[in-house]
Design a protein around this nucleic acid. Structure first.
Lengths: 131, 131
DNA sequence: CGGAATCCCCAGTGATACTG
DNA sequence: CAGTATCACTGGGGATTCCG
């Protein structure tokens, strides 16, 4: 799979129906970027400000990926100094209801520490749930 | 390294409304696991068979995490040899419509190579879209 | 059979500096 | 302001092995 150069040695999981849409939400910062764009169009610098701690490198990468995947549009503004404006595409706006449905269910989830992925030795599930 | 400086261990991104639900879909195999459970209850070995190539280690980790997060229930069956049965909880079933909405939008997405995240030098976006 | 412990690798991210 | 180049590090995941 892949462009001529640099194939990944790590074989990806077989795709499931969810795969296509989840590709958009992959990456630690993708959700924040999409959410920040769910309102009105934003410029690069605005996004950096809206999403504290995100690095320019990652923001740039996620925006470019979302653009390639058809969720985000990029418009170079002929201003001085130059600026760029990002917005959700039609497809991007179509996806928002699905996203919001997910958010709604998320609110009903029990609060669990992120470390749930890294089970402490000897700690029982009950213990972690009770904490 | 010198002294035990508690160097920042990859600070997680600030949470956004999506974060909570996306924690469930994190990990390369989580979508497959959830999808495999969306029908009827399955045993550990059945899941390994349903999800080709998944390692026991990862399947176990994802199931445990989903259990902790309240999406999946685990029932130890008192059989011989011992077996375990996994199923979506009430909350898990509540999440399925949201998931399916996401799947529906996914079908409308343009087919883009997974390598979109690793832009090749000099290759234009248009070029990758046309490919 | 269901799962935990160990070892290793690499894709994604952060930090910083630099360019247009 | 809007990105890109380079380096270093981390932890998720694969493979294998061992346990109840």
């Amino acid at each position: 799979m892949g462009l001529p150069l640099r194939r990944s040695k790590v074989e990806p999981p077989p795709p499931c129906p969810l795969t296509r849409s989840l590709l958009l939400l992959r990456g630690a910062w993708a959700p924040n970027v999409i959410w920040a764009l769910s309102g009105e169009a934003r410029r690069f610098g605005e996004l950096r400000h809206d999403i504290p701690k995100i690095s320019a490198r990652v923001l740039s990468a996620r925006l470019r990926e979302l653009e390639i995947r058809g969720l985000v549009s990029r418009q170079l503004l002929d201003t001085s100094p130059p600026s760029a404006e990002y917005a959700l595409t039609e497809l991007g706006r179509e996806m928002m209801p699905a996203i919001k449905a997910l958010v709604a269910v998320g609110h009903k989830l029990p609060e669990v520490d992120a470390r749930a992925r890294k089970p402490a030795r000897g700690a029982s599930i009950a213990g972690r749930l009770a904490a």
